[in-house]
């Protein structure tokens, strides 16, 4: 492989890595925003309410 070809493939790889990093940071940011909205809507308390009681369906009774 010539130097110019290697340079081109390296640039392509860098672009791909850059795109992947953007996706990563975007999803991370979205997930944090979702959690914040959920907490503002007190969804964590709904989770708590369900989790502090024995879930009869989960254990095969309900």
């Amino acid at each position: 492989m010539s130097e110019s070809e290697m340079g081109k493939s390296g640039m392509k790889k860098d672009k791909l890595v850059g795109k992947e990093n953007m996706v990563r940071i975007g999803v991370l940011f979205t997930s944090i925003v979702f959690i914040a909205i959920g907490i503002m809507r007190q969804e964590h308390l709904e989770v708590l309410q369900k989790a502090v009681r024995i879930c009869l369906e989960c254990i095969g009774i309900g």
Partner: peptide, 20 residues
């Protein structure tokens, strides 16, 4: 199933674990 709304909190938590 509970209140038929978008599950921001649980989905956000799952996405956070998934992306990390």
């Amino acid at each position: 199933g509970g209140r038929h709304h978008f599950p921001f909190y649980v989905l956000g938590s799952l996405m956070l674990f998934g992306i990390v």
